[in-house]
């Protein structure tokens, strides 16, 4: 199927030169987004996001563990992403690929920088803290997994409840209340095709892109950035995209 990718790539570039996108969207337009909170009640928190035809499910689980040696008074956040083989004919089962690791780490950085989870509030006693596991499950891949994953993670954390902890044990299924949360962090990803930047690339647009810039924001701060692909960005481009990221980030945040 790779040769077809080349054919489609040509087409996407042709269309972009005429100022259009294959699905007729504006250059700054997200595909239709649906956020379903609490999709997996067994988890402490969960959310499923549809971004166009991309579907990502995030589950949040909490457990007891030991803190990192250099941060003994803080809980632990651990983020993982699975690109399920069912999500795309291009995904194969196996150990985490660089793509899945990148998604997990970018989502993690956003949450951490924005202090979405108050890690200090997860401290229980010396040597014992709450661990928060955020698992990103990609179910259907039609492009822009990072934005979908970040949005689903933010929504899942918003639904998350802290399990009861009594007599040194976790009582699963009973909760002491919602997780103590700070600011929501969302990500906006722009693809650069020739010299045009477009928001929310679809699968086919990603195949044609030269570079990609993800900017994760809270209401008034940039919390994480990640550039991907081998193309380059000018300083002015970065400035424009940062402005756009704040604007579009606000739209995403309103969906949580």
């Amino acid at each position: 199927m790779e040769i077809l990718d080349e054919v489609k790539k040509d087409f996407v570039k042709d269309i972009m030169r005429k100022g259009k996108r294959p699905d007729e969207r504006g250059f700054e337009e997200y595909r239709p987004i649906v956020v379903e909170k609490g999709a997996i009640p067994a988890a402490e928190g969960s959310a499923r996001v549809h971004l166009g035809q991309t579907q990502v499910l995030v589950g949040v689980k909490m457990g007891i563990g030991t803190p990192f040696a250099d941060r003994p008074e803080e809980g632990v956040l651990s983020t993982n992403a699975e690109l399920l083989p069912m999500a795309s004919p291009t995904f194969e089962p196996g150990p985490p690929s660089p793509e899945s690791i990148e998604i997990a780490r970018v989502v993690d950085r956003g949450i951490r920088s924005a202090n979405t989870i108050d890690l200090k509030s997860l401290f229980i006693e010396e040597g014992k803290v709450w661990m928060t596991f955020v698992d990103v499950y990609v179910l259907d891949h039609d492009g822009n997994l990072i934005d979908a994953a970040a949005l689903a993670a933010a929504a899942a954390l918003r639904t998350a409840r802290q399990p009861k902890y009594e007599d040194g044990k976790v009582i699963h299924g009973e909760y002491s209340g919602p997780l103590k949360l700070g600011d929501d962090c969302v990500a906006c990803t722009f693809a650069k095709i020739d010299s045009t930047n477009i928001l929310d690339p679809s699968f086919d647009e990603e195949k044609a892109m030269d570079a990609r810039l993800t900017i994760a924001t809270t209401a008034d701060r940039i919390a994480a950035m990640q550039k991907g692909g081998s193309g380059g960005y000018t300083r002015d481009e970065i400035s424009q995209l940062a402005d756009m990221a704040f604007r579009k980030g606000a739209e995403l945040r309103s969906l949580i």
């Binding site: 997996i40 067994a42 499910l57 589950g59 689980k61 457990g63 993982n80 699975e82 698992d135 699963h172």
Partner: peptide
């Protein structure tokens, strides 16, 4: 065939991804 369970699938502990 590939059967796997999500790490968040159980009411109990967090599990590991993958087979």
């Amino acid at each position: 065939c590939r059967y796997t369970m999500a790490p968040f699938c159980s009411m109990e502990e967090h599990g590991r991804s993958g087979p």
